[in-house]
Amino acid sequence: MSTLDLQELGLRKVNSTLHNADAGEWTVSNPSGQHAIACGLDKPMTVDIQGHVGFYCAGMNQQADVTVHGHAGVGVGENMMSGVVRVKGNASQAAGATAHGGLLVIEGDASSRCGISMKGVDIVVGGSVGHMSAFMAQVGNLVICGDAGEALGDSIYEARLFVAGSVESLGADCIEKEMTPEHLATLTDLLTRAGIDADPASFRRYGSARQLYHFDIDKADAY
C-alpha cells in the first residue's frame, strides 16, 4: 500500500500519481476538505481517503474503488461510470449527479438532490436524503434506508427508487409502484453489495408514472 499525503504533495500531484498508476492500493492522507480528490480515475485500484473531502470527490470514476473515511462535499461520485465510491460519513448535495454506472454508497445521510439526473448508477444511502433527490433520474437504482425529503423523483424518467422510511412528498410524475419479486431481488443484491444491514421487505418502491415524457396538450394541467 502506498500513502499520498495531500498536504505535502498538493492536489495535482496526488491526482496525477493516481492517474499514472496501473493499479494497487492507495491511501490519501490529510485531504483537508480539498476539492476533486481522486477524480477521473480509470484503473481497478483501491483508494482510501483518510478524512473529510470537498466537492466532486471521485467524480467521473471508472473501475476504481474509492472510500472516503469522513464527510463528502457537493457532488461526490458525480458522473461516475463504474467502480465503487463509498462515503463513511454524510454527503452534501448532488451526490452521484448524472452518474452513469457503478455503485455509490453513502453510509450516513445525503443532502438534497442526491442522484439528480442519474443515468444508470446504483446509489445506496444508509440514512436519509434531502429534497429533490432523483430529480430527472433516468436510469439506475436509488436505495434510501432512511427518509426522503420533499419532491422525491420529480420529473423522473425510468430509475427505480426504494425507500424504507417516510417520503415527505413525491415530485411531479413520481408514484408509488408495486414491489415485484424482481425488484426485491435487485434491492437485496444492492443492500448486500453496499454492506448495509436493512430488511428489504421494509422498503417501498417509487418510479415514473410516465406522463411527462413528451409534451401532451391534453395533460397541460399536469405540467
Partner: peptide, 12 residues
C-alpha cells in the same frame, strides 16, 4: 465549504 473548517483542532 468544509475546507474552511479543516484547520480546526480535531476537525478530522
Amino acid at each position: 465549504e468544509y475546507r474552511a473548517i479543516a484547520s480546526l483542532p480535531g476537525s478530522d
